[in-house]
Structures are given as structure tokens and as C-alpha cells.
Amino acid sequence: MRLFKLLGISILVLGIFAFLLSLMFPSTAVVERTGVIQAPIDSVYAVVNNLKAWEKWNPWSRPDTTAQLVYSSQTSGAGASYSWQGQLNSGKVLILDSEPDKGVHYMMDIQNMRPVKGGIELKKTADGKATAIFWHMEIKLGLLPWWKLRGFLADRIYGPAMNEGLNRLNELCTHQ
């Protein structure tokens, strides 16, 4: 009996220590990728501003292949959104603001995940023939240690998909 009591107290102390230690970790994870798309800024903006075009390049536009996307009446610009309900998960994407020659900011909320605030910022290159792109995502992790631990892995988890998305976006915009 004494051994179980000692084991229980040890687990409790270890849990409290892990929680207190996790308070020193950042409560936000940021993942960023940059690139240059060999297309004029207006054609790149037309693709990133239109949610229906996201299926062709954004790796998270259809996270569950069984899901059906439901678009709002507005599919581009601030206020445009789509949602999905699938076997694996459900979620929603909402464009918060959108400006030509600057880019798009959005909120993505996926079931059982932390909300993601993201942005796709655009800028003309010096020669004006291509577009520099800065794609970033910010995830609020909260206080729980397992979410904060995932924050350390965010770049490894989401970064490769973002690179793939930028490559698809480049192909899509240069072949229009």
C-alpha cells in the first residue's frame, strides 16, 4: 500500500513539475515560408484571394478527402469562407482581410486542433515581373504542456506542406 501511495505522489509531483516547466515555453508557434513566384502580382493575388482556387494549391484546403466543401456566397475577398464536414474532421476557413498588391489574411479552424491565423503577403519583385511571397501561420498553443511541446515541432510538421503549397502555387500561376 505504501508503495502505491509513493508512486501516486511521485506521478503527481512529476506532473506538476512538467506543467510548471511548460509555463516557460512560448504559448504561440509560428511557421513561415517565403518564395518567388514567376508571375505578376495581380495574377498571384487573384489565386490566393479566391477560396475556390485554394483546392489547386493549398495543402490544407481539403484536409479530409471524403469531405465536401461548402462555400459561402462570397468566395473571394474579406468575409469569404468555406467549411467542410468529413469522416476524419470538420473545419472552416475565413478570409479576414484582403488587399490587392498586399495579400490575404485568414483564420483556419479545424476540429480538435488549435485555431490558426495565417497570412499570405505579396510584394512585387524589383523588376516587376515576379512576386515575392511570405506565407506565415500563427498557432495559439494555450497552457497545456502537450500543446506547447507540439509548438516546438510546428515547423517540422507544417513547413514541408507549406513548401509543397508554394510550389503548387508557383506552377498554377506560371501556367495561367
Results as ranks from 00 to 15, higher is better:
A46G: 13
L6A: 15
L14F: 11
F19W: 13
L51H: 09
V47Q: 04
T34D: 13
G15M: 12
T66Q: 06
N58L: 03
L12E: 02
I16G: 13
F25C: 06
I41D: 14
T28C: 06
L14N: 04
W54G: 02
T28D: 13
L69P: 03
F19E: 07
I16Q: 03
L6P: 03
L69G: 08
P59F: 02
F25K: 14
I41W: 10
T65I: 15
M24K: 12
F17P: 04
I37T: 02
M24V: 14
L51Y: 14
T28I: 11
P26G: 01
V48A: 09
L12C: 09
A29V: 03
V30G: 03
S61M: 06
T66K: 12
K52I: 05
A53T: 08
W54Y: 05
A18W: 08
I37K: 00
Y45Q: 00
A18I: 10
I37D: 00
P59S: 04
S10L: 14
A46V: 15
W54Q: 02
D64G: 11
F19G: 11
M24F: 13
A29M: 03
N49G: 07
G15F: 15
G35A: 01
G8D: 00
V48D: 09
L20C: 10
Y45I: 00
K52H: 01
I37N: 00
L20S: 13
S22K: 11
A29G: 05
T34A: 09
Y45C: 01
L23F: 07
P59D: 10
L12A: 10
K52W: 00
D64P: 11
L7S: 08
A67P: 01
A18G: 10
A67K: 04
K52D: 00
V30T: 12
G15A: 11
S27D: 10
G35S: 05
L51D: 10
L12D: 02
A53S: 15
L6V: 09
L6Y: 12
S10H: 06
G8L: 04
N49Q: 06
I9M: 14
W60C: 04
L23D: 08
R62K: 15
R33C: 04
I11D: 05
S61Q: 03
Q68M: 11
S27P: 05
E32N: 13
P40H: 08
L69N: 10
L21E: 07
N58F: 15
P26S: 02
V30M: 13
A39G: 05
R62T: 15
A53I: 00
T66Y: 06
E32D: 11
I11C: 12
W60S: 12
S43P: 07
I37M: 00
L69S: 12
P40L: 06
V31I: 07
L21G: 07
L6G: 04
W54H: 14
P59T: 10
V36S: 03
L12N: 02
